[in-house]
């Protein structure tokens, strides 16, 4: 097992290196120019050329890449072209916000998706199954921004039940220590702030969790149905075991596998989905940062962020793969 982990970690290095090359070329192939983002309506050819010179954007691509790689190898993710802030500094402030949102969404999706999937699988093609299908499809085929605006409109604007926007009310002046809004609220010792931070999380977590919810529900349903038809389940039933016992001991233990794969895959798309959700809900996380950085053609920020995302994603999937070994004794890593 240890060898397996070491090999996967070592294997990730050439991949990340390759990704850094591809990303670098990719982003520069896109039409656009950070100099125009800096100059706005004042962009003239002379001023643009001057900025290119300052930023080294007039140098050959391979020189620019080697400079960037040199920084990366020293653990330096570079600085924004637009506002000169170190990517690592801004990341440390913004990432916890995205993590909190992602965890919230995952809890919503898994916590609701698995029971719903099991419920639907109990009577395939019955009316409950149909209802669950429709609800989960609703979640997936409505774009996040429509769902997000609608949730905010109903619960924040019309009903005034939940707060909007952002991760916490700025009037509470909670000191950012860890930059996790809920943890900071706890540290501030103000119970009102903790309640406020949780309340702010609910709507964006639902909006972001809607797509994984649909997928988790559907996959759970499909794999439970699959497993229920296996011989050993029939045998267990024939032996007269209680329904609950068959469900828990025989069906779910095996149905967990595909569900876990999908959850692992969804972590990647959650980070992607956070891009829209954070914009709609005004969360200053990594997602909204990606949006503005892409719009500004802030190459350094975009490529460093994607490299960080890729590393996180590879790590999560490694953990998922290791998780299999615990969930399914039939799998051994040699």
């Amino acid at each position: 097992m240890l060898r397996f982990i070491v090999r996967r970690v070592l294997g990730a290095i050439p991949i990340l290196f390759g990704l850094s090359v591809i990303l670098f070329m990719f982003l520069r192939l896109l039409p656009g120019d950070p100099a125009i983002a800096i100059l706005g309506q004042h962009a003239t050819p002379q001023l643009i050329a001057q900025i290119h010179e300052t930023l080294g954007l007039d140098k050959p691509l391979y020189v620019q890449y080697l400079n960037y790689l040199g920084q990366l190898l020293q653990g330096n993710f570079g600085a924004s072209i637009i506002d000169s802030r170190a990517v690592a500094d801004t990341f440390a402030i913004r990432f916890p916000i995205t993590v909190e949102l992602t965890i919230g969404a995952l809890i919503f999706a898994v916590g609701l998706g698995i029971p719903l999937g099991r419920l639907a699988a109990r009577h395939p093609n019955g009316w409950i199954d149909g209802l669950v299908t429709v609800v989960s499809l609703f979640g997936i085929s409505i774009p996040i921004f429509v769902l997000g605006y609608t949730l905010a409109f109903i619960f924040a604007v019309e009903l005034h039940l939940l707060p909007y926007p952002g991760p916490i009310d700025p009037r509470l002046s909670v000191d950012p220590v860890t930059h996790f809004p809920i943890i900071d609220a706890v540290l501030s010792g103000n119970p009102g702030a903790v309640v406020d931070a949780f309340a702010h999380l609910i709507l964006p977590a639902i909006a972001l969790g809607s797509i994984p919810l649909a997928i988790v529900t559907r996959i759970t349903r499909a794999s439970v149905i699959d497993v229920s038809n296996e011989d050993y389940v029939r045998t267990a039933r024939a032996k007269g075991l209680t329904r609950k016992r068959v469900d828990d001991r025989h069906i779910m233990r095996n149905a967990w596998l595909p569900v876990t794969t999908v959850i692992g895959l969804q972590v990647g798309s959650l980070l992607g989905g956070a891009v829209l959700t954070e914009t709609v809900f005004g969360w200053p996380g990594v997602g909204s940062w990606v949006v503005t950085s892409i719009q500004n053609h802030d190459y350094i920020v975009v490529q460093s962020l994607i490299l960080i995302f890729a590393t996180i994603f590879l790590t999560v999937n490694l953990i998922v793969d290791i998780g299999y070994a615990f969930l399914n004794p039939r799998i051994r890593y040699s």
């Binding site: 605006y149 905010a152 409109f153 924040a156 604007v157 005034h160 707060p163 909007y164 926007p165 952002g166 009310d169 700025p170 914009t279 709609v280 809900f281 005004g282 200053p284 503005t292």
Partner: peptide, 19 residues
């Protein structure tokens, strides 16, 4: 406190909800 909010619908709803 200035809060950067690029999205116009988000701004409108933030005003309506008192955020």
């Amino acid at each position: 406190t200035f809060k950067p909010m690029g999205d116009s619908t988000a701004k409108l709803q933030a005003l309506q909800s008192g955020g």
